[in-house]
């Protein structure tokens, strides 16, 4: 191998590396304009999958904090009882991770429910109003409180603070507007 050959190889290597470097820096720079924080986009996507009950059963104070924990701290995706299997499946396809069984230490999946206050028992202590994460309970001190059924997520957070146990969780009643056609037997 001639000296010229060696010089050619070295020169070629340098040129290729410089070209690659230039391309890389170009690609990542143009890319980064769109994705200022790559994690933020992912957190947004995960948060969109979560059921937004804000029930805190996962151990985080709400759905968004849990989404952040999934992305930033690799928290397992099976800690959401209200979302249940469906949410776990959606998260697993979104993130490319395996499907896990629901972590029952967080709770069990329950059918859709809403809170109802027994208005004759309520003493108007406002503790449940403070506990509600979505402001779905209205009322004033020493006056009866009531739940706005359409806004209630059924998170159960209002149950423990109530001093007179006047809050019940019920399954929403079937109405003409909420009725669904049943699935045919396959």
């Amino acid at each position: 191998m001639s000296t010229f050959g060696v010089i050619a190889v070295v020169a070629l290597t340098i040129i290729v590396l410089i070209a690659m470097g230039a391309l890389l820096s170009y690609l990542s720079r143009t890319g980064s304009e769109k994705h200022a924080d790559p994690d933020a986009e992912l957190i947004e996507a995960v948060n969109a999958v979560l059921p937004q009950t804000q029930c805190a059963q996962c151990g985080y104070p709400g759905c968004r904090p849990y989404a952040q924990a999934i992305i930033k701290n690799d928290e397992p995706i099976n800690r959401c009882p209200p979302g249940g299997e469906q949410t776990i499946e959606q998260l697993s396809t979104l993130l490319g991770t395996p499907v896990l069984a629901l972590d029952t230490s967080c709770g069990q999946q329950k059918p859709e429910q809403v809170a109802v206050i027994k208005e004759d028992i309520c003493i108007g202590c406002t503790l449940c109003i403070v506990a509600c994460p979505v402001d779905a309970i209205v009322g004033a001190a020493k006056l009866m409180h009531t739940v706005i059924a359409d806004e209630c997520t059924g998170c159960e957070l209002c149950i423990p603070p109530c001093p007179v146990d006047c809050i019940d969780l019920i399954q929403p009643e079937q109405t003409a507007a909420s009725w669904q056609w049943p699935k045919p037997a396959s």
Binding site: H35, D39, L94
Partner: peptide
Amino acid sequence: QYTEIVIRKRSPLLHRVLG
């Protein structure tokens, strides 16, 4: 390695999915 850096920057979701 080079490709991974590019994909991570350009499409974080795809990067996550390909894992």
